[in-house]
Every structure is written in structure tokens, then in C-alpha cells.
């Protein structure tokens, strides 16, 4: 399975990764191999098997709408690379507002 270098750069940009030309080349081969491996599975005849999104047979796992205490803010922020007051602080990402 061949991936173009444009496709690799596009995937990298979706993940906000900057790649050197050498890395693009390396990943082009590696991602191609992975796709090739997955494509082998497509050779199986699955005509009689219903599609599934879940490999274990569970469904309808729900919880009652009863609030429970949240975590202390200092615990939640303990591993934050940067904080300011009670906020996580991060580099601004502009132009991708939702």
C-alpha cells in the first residue's frame, strides 16, 4: 500500500506535527506497511458477519444522573506543564475556533 508524501504531510498537519523531509520519507514507508497489513484483512470474506463496533458483547452501560464530588483542582492541575491560577495555561492556537 503506497501513501504519497502529500498524504503523510496532511496527516501530520492534522495532528499538528511538523516533519522533516527525511521523516516524511520514513513515515511514508512505515504507514504504508501498516495500511498494507490492515488491507490483508480485507481479503477475508465477511459477507455473513454483521458489522460491529465493539468486540465484546456488552451494550447499554449507563449510570444514573447523580452528581458526585469532582477532583480537587490542585490534583487536576498537578501534572499541567503550565498553570496560571486555577487555569491550565497553553500556547494559543488561533484560527481553529469551533
Amino acid at each position: 500500500m503506497e501513501l504519497t508524501s502529500e498524504e503523510v504531510r496532511h496527516i501530520a498537519s492534522l495532528a499538528r506535527l511538523g516533519l522533516t523531509d527525511e521523516e516524511v520519507e520514513t513515515l511514508q514507508a512505515q504507514l504504508g506497511d501498516i495500511l498494507g497489513h490492515v488491507n490483508q484483512l480485507n481479503e477475508l470474506d465477511t459477507g455473513n458477519i454483521p458489522p460491529t463496533a465493539m468486540v465484546i458483547a456488552v451494550q447499554d452501560v449507563v449510570a444514573e444522573d447523580e452528581p458526585r464530588p469532582s477532583f480537587p483542582v490542585d490534583v487536576m492541575l498537578a501534572n499541567a506543564p503550565e498553570r496560571k491560577g486555577n487555569y491550565f495555561r497553553t500556547k494559543a492556537v488561533l484560527g481553529y475556533e469551533t
Binding site: A63, E66, P67, R68, S70, F71, V73, M76, L77, G85, N86, Y87, F88
Partner: peptide, 18 residues
């Protein structure tokens, strides 16, 4: 998760969990 939705007016990040 079971964090409360009543966060209006609360300090930031006081109604969160992992």
C-alpha cells in the same frame, strides 16, 4: 462522568475529573 453541571459562577477547573 458524574461531575456536576452546576458550575455557573464557580472557580475554573473545580468541576472536573480525569
Amino acid at each position: 462522568c458524574r461531575c456536576s453541571t452546576q458550575y455557573a459562577g464557580a472557580e475554573p477547573n473545580t468541576h472536573i475529573c480525569p
